[in-house]
Design a protein around this nucleic acid. Structure first.
Lengths: 142, 142
DNA sequence: GTCCAATATGAGACTGAGTGTCAAACACGC
DNA sequence: GCGTGTTTGACACTCAGTCTCATATTGGAC
């Protein structure tokens, strides 16, 4: 997501545009990898020492609701967050370096469609996340 | 999974076969829906009042490692567990009644294969879980 | 620009899922 | 049966995430 587009999307849906939410969103977008709320809190705090922990959690929650970020699981029962475009909600997550790549919607759409049709099931949301090693981590060896 | 097969699979991989692990595995298999560790602990305790909470957590963890169960996320950042066959690790999860259906491997395999090929990414495991309303919950209305 | 109501923030207490520790109990190969 | 190495149960502990509430900000109305 382009950094300039962040404020516009943050203000959508009747939410107020606050300095804190902008800071959190930009930090997440700049990371380009999956971060836990705690990690993001620590990053943000170096530039904004007065920001509250709860604020970061709330900002992330809001971003997930608004489709600006998505949440998934990391080892040890911790949620991690990644900034993403509105259209891309499926990911390749490198379990070593935590870098995340978007998965093209085209790969996923047929599966979503066929599941809805074949099974009597109304899909609300799907977690199509692939965990493994990205190219560079794999080449770097175990 | 057939109930009779449980002890055999529990003992695989050098793990010891204990009464507690059998009880936990059978309770999870009998539930036929996603349960949190706490919920399962409470169910198990009604028949085995002395079982420890940590034991249930450890048993579930072991089952996930051994592929006898899989874990996914429920609202409120709680893990839920579902017993599953070795081959079926993708699910349709009803967010209302928590019932879980297996997703046929055939639906999923092409996606897995194409991702591995097209992208420079070594897939270790994938979470292909669809959340939504099952047929009967949908018909029962909002 | 000023005012106001509604919303967001920060601080910190609180909750509860999940983990670590350790002595006692048990499984399993011999 | 015997010995050893794993597992258990109890419970203390950790820490991610939530709640509360007084204070501060936002953004629309004027």
């Amino acid at each position: 997501m382009k950094a300039a587009a962040i404020p516009t999307r943050l203000a959508s849906g009747g939410r107020r545009l606050t300095r804190q939410r902008v800071v959190v969103a930009k930090a997440l977008a700049a990371a380009r990898r999956a971060l836990s709320a705690q990690e993001l809190y620590e990053r943000v705090r170096s530039g904004h020492p007065t920001i509250g922990r709860a604020t970061v959690y709330r900002a992330l929650e809001a971003q997930v609701e608004d489709g600006m970020a998505s949440r998934f699981e990391r080892e040890g029962h911790v949620s991690a967050y990644i900034a993403c475009d509105a259209e891309h909600h499926h990911h390749l997550v490198c379990t070593r370096c935590q870098r995340v790549e978007d998965l093209a919607e085209g790969v996923v759409a047929p599966v979503l469609a066929s599941v809805g049709r074949q099974r009597d099931f109304q899909v609300d949301h799907a977690a199509l996340d692939f965990y493994g090693l990205c190219g560079s981590c794999r080449r770097r060896g175990r």
